[in-house]
Design a protein around this nucleic acid. Sequence first.
DNA 1: CATATGCGTAACCCTTTGGTTACATATATT
DNA 2: AATATATGTAACCAAAGGGTTACGCATATG
Lengths: 106, 106
Amino acid sequence: MRIDATIGALADSTRRELLRRLADKPCRAGELAEGFTISRPAICKHTRMLGRAGLIRAKKVGRERIYELAPRGQLAVQELIRTLEEVGAFWDTALNAFKRYVEENR
Amino acid sequence: MRIDATIGALADSTRRELLRRLADKPCRAGELAEGFTISRPAICKHTRMLGRAGLIRAKKVGRERIYELAPRGQLAVQELIRTLEEVGAFWDTALNAFKRYVEENR
DNA sequence: CATATGCGTAACCCTTTGGTTACATATATT
DNA sequence: AATATATGTAACCAAAGGGTTACGCATATG
């Protein structure tokens, strides 16, 4: 599923923070890693995962690598949200089933 | 974080399917495991994880255990959705930042 | 040309996840 | 009382996640 890569990528606060930073502006790899307590290679693995999920992309400029949000990523997030909204609706379904049950047995 | 337990629990299609089944009606453990290709203990571990995330709960009736959606679970899902909506909005932020940039440099 | 810089990859660790089979326990049933 | 049934737990395994340090490589810079 498409969704699983997306939810996996978003299931980590470091990666969500990386996305937040890229909302402000495209960013060099080194700059992107600043301020985190974890090492630069660790950040690199996170960006790789975000890339595999199609949420970010990178272009090489000289010896630097510039990361930015991948335009298609927004769709993936919205698709995931729709799936989770369906899940959230299960509780409504359950409530309705219960009401029906009460109705039929009074 | 609250969110991490929720997103972790929902990041698996088997667990989402279990929730979907519980939307229809509360369900015995054995019945809940029917139709899956994986073993019953595997399902049991999934239900445990859903329980730890506060999405389902169980009551013991005789030797059976009846699972059902935990009322508070819907809030957790909605909270997660709100977080993901914020993430989705990063793309809008990025687009606006780009527009501003173009505006300032023309 | 030599060296410094930016950045990804490799190799390794430990923990978590998702699965298995075998087993223990509590409750029904005969 | 003996047995069958419903179900969770234990022990184990392989793969993935999240972290580390050491290293390799391409590109700037003196």
